[in-house]
Design a protein around this nucleic acid. Structure first.
Length: 460
RNA sequence: GGCUCGGUGGCAGAGUGGUCAUGCAGGGGACUGCAAAUCCCCGUACGUCGGUUCAAUUCCGGCCCGAGCCUCCA
């Protein structure tokens, strides 16, 4: 398997440290609002990576955290006048719902920062004791010059970081690059007692502490969005490496690219985010998932309505092939084609893998032999499963409708189809076509096939 | 300014030193009462200027254009 490693800037052969225990840690959301597509992309991408790893290795430990203490959370909770726990549980639950709709399987571990405060304090203690951190005015700061490799992950020269610095340097910092591990909390804000006073963790230490607690000191893969490379992952790497006496923290750093909106990145700071739950009102989650996988994970992905419509038509084709194959596929015995697996194992080349899916669909459509069709359908399902796609019945796919959509009930549709069949039998084609057009006007498309007529709801 | 990534046919989007990506849209044909679905066929695609090479979209260099990061962010 090949994986692009941000640390080296190139694709490298991936071999886990221990093939019997592959570890992956991915930075999850800070839960103070509903998830937008930018949050969904890494969730989907690393879900696929986890599936591919599980296909190859017997045991994969995948951790994706939830950050449930942070200044933005504090601000949002205060604005609503509720405890931060109320706010974070609400948005964590919403996050789970949204990801489930996108076919994202739960990770093996989902640590929350507020449940790992002791581990965070212990790690800070170790960093102070080993001379990598110091206390200043109620803060504990990581001392960047104490870690000579600082800047290596993001290819940055620490001396030059100051040049473009956009923030004022706090007067208590020994070095302008030093960053906070622990910061004081005033009485009105959430806080925990510590040897350095009541406070809360800085932004980066949580992931270091939780990755260590859940997966160990050296992990195989550390993932997240590309914007986390600096400062978040650079700082995590510094903390973890120093807290572990110089031991390698993450062997592979994997980062997904941004979603873009008319060429510009989709981000809260830009104000052009699309909420997953809003999009789910107008399109099936599986279509959103396919759209997110239709480009390579490291490339920017332009998002618009056409991308979604395109994904729906692709799924129409794939499910159409499965529907024509009937339900005779012994999926559990089927294997994904080698070519498909190789595409995914080549740095998660999902577009190339999808191409194999369409080749299977074409072969399936062409095949006349029942056993052959069953075999191909099984392979198609098995392959798609690695992408988290095609796991529902074609009937369910073609019956999807937007929330609150006004479409006829299946009973009404069947009744219309029966009347049309009678008209056809009587060679009253004008009446038959009139019924078909009437259904079409109400969002129902029908197709005559040998042995009857089937229907589906239009993508509109 | 520093550091990264990109520019592929109408659109989306892989990839490769010399035969195919793939999907959608479009054109033609088969099938169909007509459609739809499906199948078959089709379109001088690789930003630009040079270099290396028998051969460059692919390798190298310059240029143009775009995006991202440089302590809020997936």
């Amino acid at each position: 398997m090949q994986l692009h490693n941000t640390a080296s800037g190139r694709k490298e052969p991936f071999e886990p440290l221990d093939p019997k225990r592959v570890t992956m840690y991915v930075c999850g959301p800070t839960v103070y609002s509903y998830a937008h597509l930018g949050n969904a992309r890494p969730a989907v991408v690393f879900d696929v990576l986890a599936r591919v790893l599980r296909h190859r290795y017997p045991r994969v430990l995948y951790a994706r955290n939830i950050t449930d203490i942070d200044d933005k959370i504090n601000a949002a909770a205060r604005a609503e006048g509720v405890d931060i726990g109320v706010l974070t549980s609400r948005y964590a639950a919403a996050y789970h719902e949204d990801l489930a709709a996108l076919g994202v399987a739960p990770p093996d571990f989902e640590p929350r920062v507020t449940q790992y405060i002791p581990q965070i304090l212990a790690m800070i203690r170790r960093l102070i004791d080993s001379g990598h951190a110091y206390e200043a005015q109620g803060h504990v700061l990581f001392h960047v010059p104490s870690y000579p490799d600082y800047g290596q992950l993001s290819r940055r020269d620490p001396r030059e970081l100051l040049a473009g610095a956009r923030v004022e340097v706090a007067p208590y910092k020994k070095d302008p690059g030093d960053f906070v591990l622990w910061k004081p909390s005033p009485p009105e804000l959430p806080g925990w007692d510590s040897p350095w006073g009541r406070g809360r963790p800085g932004w980066h230490i949580e992931c270091s502490a939780m990755a260590e607690a859940v997966l160990g000191e050296t992990i195989d893969i550390h993932g997240g969005g590309h914007d986390l490379v600096f400062p978040h992952h650079e700082n995590e790497r510094a903390q973890s490496t120093c807290a572990h006496g110089g031991k390698l923290f993450a062997r592979f750093w994997v980062h997904n690219g941004f979603l873009t909106d008319r060429g510009e990145k989709m981000a809260k700071s830009v104000g052009n985010v699309r909420l997953v739950r809003e999009l789910l009102k107008h399109a099936p989650g599986e279509a959103l998932r396919l759209a997110l996988l239709s480009g390579h994970y490291r490339q920017p992905l332009e998002w618009n309505d056409e991308v979604i419509a395109d994904a729906r038509r692709k799924l129409d084709r794939l499910y159409g092939a499965l529907r024509d194959a009937g339900d005779l596929a012994p999926a559990h015995e089927a294997q994904a084609p080698q070519e498909f697996v190789e595409a995914l194992e080549d740095d998660l080349n999902t577009p190339a893998a999808l191409a194999v899916l369409f080749e299977l669909a074409r072969a399936l459509n062409k095949s006349e032999d029942a056993a052959d069709k069953a075999r191909l359908a099984g392979r198609l399902r098995a392959a798609a499963n690695l992408l988290g796609l095609l796991q529902q019945s074609p009937q369910a796919w073609f019956a999807w409708k937007p929330a609150n959509a006004e479409v006829p009930t299946p009973q009404e549709i069947e009744a219309s189809i029966a009347r049309r069949a009678a008209a056809k039998k009587a060679k009253d084609y004008a009446e038959a076509d009139r019924i078909r057009e009437a259904l079409k006007a109400r969002g129902v498309l029908i197709e005559d096939v040998p042995g009857g007529t089937r229907w589906r709801l239009a993508d509109g």
